[in-house]
Amino acid sequence: MTRARLLLLSPTLAMIGFFLLLPVALMAVYSFLSPGTYGGVEWLLSFDAYIQFFFERDFLTDELVFHTSYLSIYFRSFVQALAATVICLLIGFPTAYFIATRPPATRSAWVLLVTVPYWVNLLIRTVSMLFVLRDEGPLNGALAAAGIVDAPLRIAYTDFAVALGLVYSYLPFMVLPIYAAIERFDFSLMEAACDLYAGRWTILRRIILPTVKPGVVAGCLLVFIPSLGAYIAPDLLGGGKNLMIGNLVALQFQGSRNWPFGAAAAVLLLSAVLVALTVLARRRALSAAGN
């Protein structure tokens, strides 16, 4: 590295290195310490934060008893993220396909239309969703006015609402990479397959899907990863009852004040995300090598 280059990179190294990398490392260290009484930590090595995930210390016998209350939060997060990913795929693939088969002039307008919501404040989008879905909201108002329901339909503060919120949050991440893959697809292959007596749906399954698979995988991971660590959607739409990992982490620093446990929860979340990102990077490298 030349001196000029080092000079140009030093603000980046300083800023992200000092205010992000170092804090994350410190957080990992904190996960192995003992909790302080009023938040913070005692500098005593302890694995309690991790043990706490799986075991509870019995009040009377002081024995460690296996429990699932925290594991179930991780499990729920995983299921929610998976559900959001599947729904996004079911909506996102046809949308991406539809956009990619538009004439080039209108295509970029469609892409912009998908992109813009991403840049709109996530909190505001989620608040809007809650506004529409809640018991006193316009959706229930319209349903009641039309005489379809007598009592308000309970949608807000359910697992379904959280999944819907996640889909709403990250749908553009599914559409865009799939769109990019389909746009590169050579549609003369489709004519060739058709000429060889393949039907529409056979072509989709046997010709298109295998070709655009890297885009589909990328889209799924790009939805799954942020969904797993989501905070706003479960917090607002889940009404604080249907916790996900993000909420569990935040709680330890706001309410429960068990910092080492919060740090450990964050470390576990980060590890899961890094594994998923590594898979994504491998895929990218593979498909790049394939091309």
Partner: peptide
Amino acid sequence: IPEIVTAVA
């Protein structure tokens, strides 16, 4: 890095 992790770190 998930935002919530960045936040607490």
